[in-house]
Design a protein around this nucleic acid. Structure first.
Lengths: 206, 206
DNA sequence: CACGATATAGAACGATCGATAAATAATATC
DNA sequence: GATATTATTTATCGATCGTTCTATATCGTG
């Protein structure tokens, strides 16, 4: 997509670091949500003038879309790593996912919970497209989890009488609930105990 | 609190029905969240002039506080009824709670999910007090659930090695996740299957 | 009927919203 | 160095935000 080292574009080069600004923006949107975060907030937090943000991202929605991708690349990738790790059993993969959720959702250095779940939980009709962006991400993530379970089932790594779609939706539901819990102040150990209880429901072979 | 039939207050009587207006306001805040719902929206939806709303509720935050109580009286009471039903076993109570959550969160006539979970999921610092109002409600509801489980444990209605606090937090977490799921379009039957999986391996008394 | 009290409707308040126009600065290319 | 292109700064735009003012309407009470 972007030419890595080849000829730079003409004109005055950008003086601010796009990824650094996005990292700041991620935190703001994460904490306050899409509509409650104003451009003035973003200008104050990133130190980048409004016109420069608009030149780089088009508008607030475009900036948010870039923020989503930045969050996915820096946080979601780490969260879902166990799902994509072929060395793990199906159970270990889900266990790793829930344990990472427990720790990352309550990590001190970042806002509580998951950005994907709370950044646009309830918005005005004017921002329906934004809500949809995140919803699609959530649905896609659940689908990936279910696909992982289906692979496990195909390899005999899951009880035969288990519906991967139901199990995946259950796991995903617990994870979404853990985000709400984290937002309300649940500690890592509390979230871990919740994750453990969810894994206790793991379907045993008959 | 309010004098039921005694001498009415002096002055021009209120022409709009407070509860009817609150019901409309509940739907708006439920769907869009606190900050994304404007006073202009509320005026348009309720048909009550802004000045009248301010006269009745003080300001937007006061109106929202009244909306919370209205929601609690009309929806939460029904949702948590099984918890307060002494005729039900501990398992039946929790089962009833989750099943009511599954159906009410996906009921066609109302916004998806639970008002308490999504109406102020992420807000600006200016509305921190509002966020706290709902958080306190959520924490209190979880405490009531845990107390119910503790009563069950005291009566030998729960496995002796079960920690009611952990089990209650787990059930509450699943319910919160079900709200996110409902917001993303999960059907009643999908939510019921999630609830069913949460209830599997219930730690009943041996 | 007069008077105080409360509610109503409509207009308008200052503040903030997302977004942009105009002028200037810094680069690549010719 | 001339020119085209892009980024930055500063100021500002119209719209909307929550809220309040003003004037009027409708009640209970004396």
């Amino acid at each position: 997509m972007t030419e890595t080292k080849a000829r730079r574009r003409a004109g005055r080069p950008r003086v601010f670091d796009t990824d650094a600004a996005l990292d700041k923006a991620v935190r703001l949107f994460w904490q306050r949500g899409y509509e409650a975060t104003s451009m003035a907030d973003l200008v104050a937090e990133t130190g980048v003038a409004a016109a420069s943000l608009y030149a780089a991202f088009g508008n607030k929605a475009g900036l948010f879309a870039a923020v989503i991708e930045r969050y996915a690349a820096t946080f979601s990738v780490h969260l879902y790593a166990p799902i994509n790790d072929p060395a793990l059993s199906t159970y270990e993969a889900v266990k790793g996912l829930l344990e990472r959720a427990a720790s990352s959702f309550s990590e001190p250095g970042t806002p509580a919970g998951c950005f994907m779940y709370s950044a646009a939980a309830a918005v005005s009709p004017a921002s329906a497209a934004i809500e949809c962006l995140l919803r699609d991400k959530r649905i896609a993530a659940e689908a990936l989890l279910i696909e992982r379970l289906q692979r496990g089932a195909a390899q005999g790594d899951l009880a035969a009488n288990t519906d991967p779609a139901v199990l995946g939706k259950f796991i995903n539901t617990v994870m979404e609930g853990m985000s709400v819990q984290a937002r309300d102040g649940a500690t890592t150990s509390e979230l871990l105990s919740v994750a453990k209880m969810a894994l206790d429901r793991w379907p045993a072979a008959i």
